[in-house]
């Protein structure tokens, strides 16, 4: 006799469960976590290099960087004196909560204020995998098309911040900056946008202030929630 057993479960509920656990661990330790996402080559690693170079040496920051192959990015990021670990996926085109959970054993969250996660270069799949982060940040460079937000609406809709990178190259490329900003707003009304150049450092301090302010807001929100309950 054939029986139809209802399941009605999200396929990725295991990732979701782990992501919620990670979120709670970050919250308990007041660690602000960011998931940086972009196409390959938009400048995620370069932006992190600039960011780590600007941080005072006693900043309690760590980086997890994901790639399909090589440890190149972790090596680049480790030279600034902060913990940087590579997650090599071997073939998987995105980071997932299980990978983060496994590599977090290398850090003591009670000794961190900021965890920067650099996802695998991919504008599609990372959108589906919650890593427990406070915010997704999508990076797009001026050597790409200004219609990127329209082509990849899911990640732009889910990101709190859009960074438009390589703006030093604007005089040499046909990229329409205002159109790109408009497209991002169309897909995600109210998305914050910062323009940066890792070559000239323009906009990097705005990005760093954003990180600082968002972390502060997260801690305040936690305090308010505790007071209410």
């Amino acid at each position: 006799m054939t029986t139809r057993v209802p399941v009605e479960q999200k396929v990725l509920n295991e990732n979701q469960r782990l992501a919620l656990e990670l979120r709670e661990r970050y919250r308990q330790n007041d660690v602000f976590c960011v998931n940086l996402i972009s196409s390959p080559g938009s400048g995620k690693t370069s932006l992190l290099e600039r960011t780590l170079a600007e941080f005072p040496i006693d900043t309690r920051v760590a980086v997890l960087t994901g790639d399909i192959q090589t440890e190149n990015d972790a090596r680049r990021l480790a030279q600034f004196g902060f913990p940087a670990r590579q997650i090599t996926t071997g073939g998987t085109c995105h980071l997932d909560a299980k990978m983060i959970d496994k590599h977090l054993t290398e850090f003591d969250l009670s000794e961190l204020d900021l965890l920067l996660i650099e996802n695998v270069g991919n504008l599609v799949c990372p959108s589906s995998y919650d890593l427990g982060e406070h915010a997704k940040v999508v990076l797009l460079s001026v050597t790409e098309g200004e219609d990127k937000p329209l082509k990849y609406p899911s990640i732009f809709a889910k990101s709190e911040l859009c960074i438009i990178n390589k703006i030093d190259l604007l005089p040499y490329v046909p990229f329409n900056l205002q159109q790109a900003r408009d497209n991002a707003q169309r897909v995600h009304p109210g998305i914050e946008i910062i323009e940066t150049s890792c070559t000239t450092a323009q906009g990097v301090d705005t990005w760093m202030n954003w990180l600082d302010e968002k972390r502060r807001q997260a801690i305040v929100a936690k305090g308010t929630a505790s007071a209410v309950s």
């Binding site: 006799m1 054939t2 029986t3 139809r4 057993v5 209802p6 399941v7 009605e8 479960q9 999200k10 396929v11 990725l12 589906s128 899911s154 809709a157 009304p189």
Partner: peptide
């Protein structure tokens, strides 16, 4: 023009059919 997505992101297992 301002609308919000309320469906279409599903990725669910709905049922399993079994013979016992």
């Amino acid at each position: 023009l301002a609308t919000t997505c309320i469906g279409g992101e599903d990725l669910d297992i709905v049922f399993m059919e079994i013979e016992e």
